Computed example of a mutant assay.
Amino acid sequence: MDYGSREGIPVLDVARTTEPDIVGRSKRLWLLPGGRCLVQIIPSLRSFTYQRDEMVERTGPLRLDFYEKAAARIVAAGVPCAFRERVSADHYLADYCPAPPFEVIVKNRATGSTTRKYPGLFEDGAPLPRPVVKFDYRVDPEDQPIGEDYLRALGLPVEEMRERSLAVNDVLRSWLHPVEVWDFCLIFGQTEDGELTVISEISQDCMRLRHEDGSPLDKDLFRKGVAGDEIVNQWSRILDVIS
């Protein structure tokens, strides 16, 4: 199958023989012709709150296992997604849209930053009467909540981002049941014609999932100091649900 190339180099050889154009904490990205890019998942896990930053081998392919299937689900539900095709255990092709410094977080339970930043408002882990959508400014060392009017002042389609985030929430909750989706984050890019598209990974690394027995199947394991092998074992359990 023809996955495209850059300067005549087959797409996977691009990653083997050239330096990435963009390197982040969890991804390496090579720009390709036709508005595409090749992305490699870096098996890194990071928690600012718990001061942990480590490489956990085998988590990269597990994240891509999840993302590949999640992307297909949300596209089928009418939500555009940059993901196009998996080309190796930890590489995939995507449409390229520059990443803005904002993310959207959907919460179905009061957890994480909700109880940490707003102590006393909600009991930790309590179900919320309806999903809460919030926006964060992505900045080191810790992302910060940002008022929606700042985003409107920048000309961003706040209501459309909210609506699409809630649509993704509906898809994930239905698809993953009986695993419970506590929260997740999304990053939206805009195509040249202004179309909103999900450009962020959707995986165990950027959401909170609870098995029906109550155990975490996500990065909370890392936050709590669980060893890498056990993180891999627990993350693999979600594949029994999404196969």
Rank of each mutant, 00 (worst) to 15 (best):
I22N: 01
V23I: 14
V23F: 04
G24K: 11
G24Q: 10
R25C: 00
K27L: 05
R28S: 13
L29A: 06
G35R: 07
R36D: 06
L38Y: 08
I42V: 15
L45Q: 12
S47T: 08
T49W: 11
Y50M: 09
Q51V: 04
D53S: 12
E54Y: 14
E54D: 14
V56K: 01
E57V: 11
G60I: 04
P61F: 03
P61H: 08
L62I: 14
L62V: 13
L64R: 01
L64T: 01
D65R: 08
F66T: 00
Y67G: 00
E68H: 06
K69V: 11
A70S: 11
R73A: 15
I74V: 15
V75Y: 02
V75W: 02
V79D: 03
R86D: 06
V87T: 14
S88W: 07
A89F: 00
H91L: 13
A94T: 08
A94V: 08
D95L: 09
C97M: 14
A99G: 09
V104C: 14
V104R: 09
V104P: 03
I105L: 15
K107M: 13
A110Q: 07
T114L: 15
P119M: 12
G120L: 09
L121C: 05
F122S: 00
G125H: 12
P127F: 05
P129L: 12
V132Y: 09
V132C: 05
Y137M: 12
Y137V: 04
E142V: 14
D143R: 03
D143W: 00
Q144A: 12
G147L: 11
G147R: 14
A153N: 10
L154D: 07
G155C: 07
G155L: 06
P157Y: 08
M161K: 02
